[in-house]
Design a protein around this nucleic acid. Structure first.
Length: 504
RNA sequence: GAGGGCGUAGCUCAGUCGGUAGAGCAACGGAUUUUUAAUCCGUAGGCCGAGGGUUCGAGUCCCUCCGCCCUCACCA
């Protein structure tokens, strides 16, 4: 009677997918389904409701309501002439009940070939079981995709960090909190774009491949254009192009996209990371502070649902206004030295074991002070804090403070000891800008690294402006309570997998 | 780049003093028409990350290598 006869065993499967022995059974089931006229990889299945909607619909007045759902099988409980199947979509799970005599005989035979991980569509009446579980009492089901590889264990899930990153797709359908994080990341980006548009900004896209990498001092990745026979750099920042747009008269621009920095990898650094940069004509860094505070606290309030959030062991209160602390005051408070007192700074650096490798003799006092700042101050800045008014020598693209010419109108935002945003009153004096670039690159050989076109652009007149960069990955880390940047990037960079490293 | 940790069945993990490789889940066969980590009976599943060494004997000790994680370094 069964249409699902066993065809001759096919010894054909792409060899690059090394299936463990027991998964041969899935290939066999696939062949049996095909022999029974079932397409094991399905097609369009319109009209399915989300499992979330189905759960909400399951009230006594709706008893028996016909519903359609689709999702991946996460659990099967065989009861002989009846079967309970849990299916999962990206909103959650719902139970399906398949009973002999309720579905067709052929369908009942087919359902015996279902496995964990298969994707099915279901039609049936909605009701709760006597134990109160929301259930679709199936009249019919449709196999939408047969899974050839078994999913991870249903109770412990997928824990192996390496497999989680390398096979993020498995991580996503196995670990609900991972799905939650990445959906939330998407909502955060949408929220930020909305905020920016409400404030009159337009989103633009500037070159990722640049012939002169500028806007930050990081080491770039090098690539090559064949037709032009030209080396190009992946951008380390979009800054110099966005400012050209200010010159062009685009008064409020922002870009949310990747930057690439050829440097170390850590829990807070991925070689490609997402940054929002924004420039507002006729504004300055104080306006950027208000913008930053408003957007990030807004995300906590509107998307997380609370201004008080947890990041690991740290409790963070995102309620504005956030602390505004002068760089020099913080340096005095935590390092005990005054900015500009090069003697005190030098001896303080020598005292600090973690800074033993610093080249004290050949470094500018402000650079040494910044070593102290990074070592002694930054890790202590747990609550959201704007550090304001940096030494000018550290900020080549920033306007000096009117009252204090040695200080620059810059802030960095620290949350949980992490640098999360950076903003300036943008330097718009091309002569001063050229001077600072030259100081920056030093050697005459390096002068070709100065972006002359950018200086020309400033020569046409760039309006005074506030500029801002927000590290999106780090903000998402804090708002989703993930300790590693790799947990908020779908496919973080990993070393290429080799035969020697595989333990398959 | 340095230091530390980890790598055992598809997944999650045990593996004692160096002495025949284990459990749960998943898989396979059977029972079961309201279960929900279903239950019950039975079966099978291993290059112990890779390579070398010590030893009568290595998952275990030593060396080299590969990969991942953590800390540090690098990082206007």
């Amino acid at each position: 009677m069964t249409r699902f006869v066993v065809p001759p065993r096919v010894n054909f499967f792409p060899q690059r997918i090394a299936l463990p022995e027991h998964e041969d059974f899935r290939i066999e089931k696939l062949a049996r389904l095909r022999a029974g006229g079932i397409d094991p990889h399905g097609s369009r299945f319109p009209g399915a409701r989300s499992t979330e909607e189905i759960r909400n619909l399951c009230i006594p007045e709706n008893e028996g309501l016909p519903v359609r759902a689709a999702g991946r099988i996460t659990n099967i409980r065989w009861m002989g002439k009846a079967t309970f199947i849990d299916i999962q979509d990206w909103t959650g799970r719902v139970q399906v009940y398949i009973k002999k005599n309720k579905v067709s005989d052929a369908r009942f035979e087919e359902h015996k070939l279902l496995d964990l991980g298969d994707i099915i569509g279901v039609d049936g009446g909605l009701a709760k079981t006597k134990t109160g579980e929301v259930t679709i009492f199936a009249d019919n089901f449709t196999l939408l995709t047969k899974a050839l590889i078994s999913p991870p264990e249903k109770w412990h899930g997928l824990k192996d960090v390496e497999i989680r990153y390398r096979r993020r797709y498995v991580d996503l359908f196995t670990n609900p909190e991972v799905m939650r994080t990445f959906l939330l990341r998407s909502h955060i980006l949408r929220y930020i774009r909305n905020c920016m548009e409400k404030r009159g900004f337009v989103e633009v896209e500037t070159p990722m491949m640049q012939s002169i990498p500028g806007g930050a001092a990081a080491r770039p990745f090098i690539t090559h254009h064949n037709a032009l026979d030209m080396d190009l750099f992946l951008r380390v920042a979009p800054e110099l192009y966005l400012k050209r747009l200010l010159v062009g008269g685009m008064e409020r621009v922002f870009e949310i996209n990747r930057n690439f920095r050829n440097e170390g990898i850590s829990t807070r650094h991925n070689p490609e990371f997402t940054m929002m940069e924004a420039y507002q004509a006729y504004a300055d860094y104080t306006d950027m502070m208000e913008l930053t505070e408003s957007v990030i606290s807004g995300i906590a309030r509107d998307l997380i649902g609370s201004l008080r959030i947890s990041f690991g062991d740290i409790a963070l209160d995102m309620t504005p206004p956030w602390a505004r602390r002068c760089y020099s005051d913080l340096l005095q408070e935590y390092a005990g030295v005054r900015l500009g007192d090069s003697e005190a700074i030098t001896s303080r650096v020598r005292m600090e074991p973690a800074l033993a490798k610093v080249d004290v003799k050949n470094s500018h006092p402000d650079v040494l002070a910044n070593e102290l700042f990074e070592e002694l101050v930054e890790p202590r800045l747990s609550a959201p804090t704007f550090v304001i008014d940096y030494p000018k020598s550290l900020c080549p693209l920033t306007k000096a403070c009117a009252a204090e010419p040695e200080l620059a109108q810059r802030f960095e935002l620290y949350i949980a000891g992490m640098e999360c945003a950076n903003a300036y009153s943008e330097l718009n004096d091309p002569e001063e800008q050229e001077k600072r670039f030259v100081e920056q690159v030093g050697d005459a050989d390096e002068r070709e690294r100065i972006d002359r076109d950018f200086l020309d652009a400033q020569g046409y007149g760039m309006p005074p402006a506030g500029g801002l960069g927000i590290g999106i990955d780090r903000i998402v880390m804090i708002l989703t309570n993930n300790a590693s940047i790799r947990d908020v990037i779908l496919f973080p960079l990993l070393r290429r997998e080799t035969d020697e490293s595989k333990n398959e």
